[in-house]
Simulated scan of single mutants.
Amino acid sequence: MGKVDTSSKVVALPISISGPAEPAWVSIRDAAERKRLSVKTIRRYISAGYIHAERVGPKLIRVSVASLDALGTPLQYRGGAS
């Protein structure tokens, strides 16, 4: 019979050290907490089209985290009036 290789090889697998992945969709309450706004304001922003949301069931609504992150405009300092 032939010789069988009984040595085992160790394979290193990449490990994610960045922590758990951020969800792509959150509830309206979670969206309000993330942005420190009221649930009512989040609902208004959804109605106005400022935030993207989708209805998942007859009552369940999920808000896009990407649209929450894009909400608002960063301000740039242009210097004071002299």
Score class of each variant (00 low, 15 high):
I51P: 03
A70G: 11
V4P: 06
T41K: 15
S64V: 00
L60V: 15
V65Q: 00
Y77N: 05
S8F: 11
S47P: 01
P20L: 05
I28V: 15
Q76V: 12
L75M: 10
Y45N: 15
S8Y: 11
I51E: 02
G57W: 03
A66M: 05
K59N: 12
A31Q: 01
I61H: 05
R43L: 08
K3R: 14
I46D: 05
I17Q: 03
A12I: 14
L71G: 04
T73K: 09
V65K: 02
S16H: 06
L13P: 05
R36T: 10
G72F: 04
V10E: 03
S27F: 00
K40I: 11
P23E: 07
T41M: 13
G2V: 11
W25T: 05
V4I: 15
V56Q: 13
R43A: 06
A32C: 06
A66D: 12
L71H: 14
L37N: 14
A32R: 01
I15W: 02
L71P: 09
P23W: 02
I61S: 03
S8C: 10
Q76C: 09
V39Q: 11
A12N: 14
W25I: 04
V11G: 01
S27Y: 00
V26I: 13
G49D: 06
E33C: 05
G80Q: 06
H52E: 11
A53M: 03
A21E: 10
L71S: 05
V4N: 14
A31S: 02
A21H: 10
I15Q: 03
H52L: 11
A53E: 00
K3T: 14
R62S: 01
Y77R: 08
E22T: 06
R43H: 15
R55I: 07
L13F: 10
P23R: 07
D69G: 02
D5N: 13
A70M: 05
A66W: 02
E54G: 10
V56C: 09
P58G: 13
K35N: 13
G49A: 09
D30T: 07
L75Q: 08
S27Q: 00
P74K: 14
G49R: 06
I17K: 04
Y50F: 13
G2R: 13
V39R: 15
S38Y: 07
T6D: 11
S47K: 15
R34K: 10
E22G: 03
L60F: 14
S8P: 04
I17D: 09
K59H: 15
L37W: 07
T6Q: 13
R62V: 03
V10H: 08
G57N: 13
K3H: 15
A31V: 01
T41F: 06
S82C: 06
I42R: 01
S16D: 13
T73P: 01
L37F: 09
I28M: 09
G19I: 01
R29Q: 15
V10W: 07
I61M: 05
P14K: 08
V11R: 12
I28D: 12
V4Y: 12
A66E: 05
